[in-house]
């Protein structure tokens, strides 16, 4: 059984009486441990797809199964709990809370998980070690560089040991060098067995992932059978560490 299973997912918005089909029958599987990119131009529906995959939004039609749980029937409370326990997000604009320091930002998901103060601290420090920012724990986000902020955001996404991490244009606000470092970090994380979904409009970045799903007009344009995914890999990525 795949980690994430989408079957004929539709999402329609009503904007001023006009029906907008953001997603129009998307079916896909994501296996545990995959490093995958969702690519498409702006307005293609990739963000909508990510929001639905990330349980931030629910589909108009279709079924989604995450880790064996039927998402489309979950209540908002259950969705919040799934976001908390099974999913991590990394955003383009980092989305750290400016009033909290780095450690508190990383602790945030555990507060909602109900962990006690000591456990929160310990695990947040572990997550910060993973992104090599443990010496910046007491800094404010505003005192960090963009790349460091994004690494804090990654630590926050990982702190509850989620089943899957979604990164929405994680390098979009970074210079190419820092962006590369972030992507390398993601690659390292996948090698440790984490599942990461990268959402981007940039084919160069998408090229770094073993598997790509292209969205166009709310549909998967190059439908790749997950079992055949290996055929689609960019050669450079076949040897991790040497990419671009």
């Amino acid at each position: 059984m795949a980690l994430l299973e989408l079957r004929d997912v539709h999402k329609t918005y009503h904007l001023g009486g006009e029906e907008i089909r953001a997603l129009d029958g998307v079916s896909m599987d994501i296996e545990a441990g995959e490093f995958i990119s969702i690519i498409g131009p702006s307005g293609s529906g990739k963000s909508t797809l990510m929001h639905i995959l990330g349980c931030l939004d629910s589909p108009s039609r279709g079924t989604i199964k995450l880790d064996g749980l039927m998402i489309e029937k979950a209540t908002s409370r259950q969705l919040a709990s799934i976001r908390n326990q099974k999913i991590g997000f990394v955003f383009q604009f980092f989305n750290l809370l400016p009033k909290l320091n780095v450690l508190q930002n990383v602790e945030l998901p555990m507060i909602y998980a109900g962990a006690n103060a000591k456990e929160r601290r310990d695990r947040a420090m572990e997550a910060l070690q993973l992104v090599q920012l443990e010496n910046r724990a007491k800094h404010r986000p505003s005192q960090l560089s963009g790349g460091q902020q994004q690494r804090v955001a990654i630590a926050r996404a990982l702190v509850n040991s989620p089943r899957i991490v979604f990164a929405d244009e994680p390098t979009g606000n970074l210079d190419s060098h820092t962006g590369e470092a972030i992507l390398n970090l993601f690659r390292t994380l996948t090698q440790q067995g984490r599942t990461i979904v990268l959402v981007t409009h940039d084919p160069e970045i998408a090229a770094l992932t073993p598997r790509r799903i292209e969205i166009r007009d709310g549909k998967i344009s190059v439908k790749v059978d997950p079992r055949l995914a290996g055929l689609d890999r960019v050669p450079a990525v076949a040897e991790p560490g040497k990419a671009a």
Partner: peptide, 13 residues
């Protein structure tokens, strides 16, 4: 509030 919700805050939280 959006960030808090995305990391798992419920409506009630």
């Amino acid at each position: 509030i959006g960030i808090r919700k995305s990391v798992g805050a419920t409506t009630f939280d």
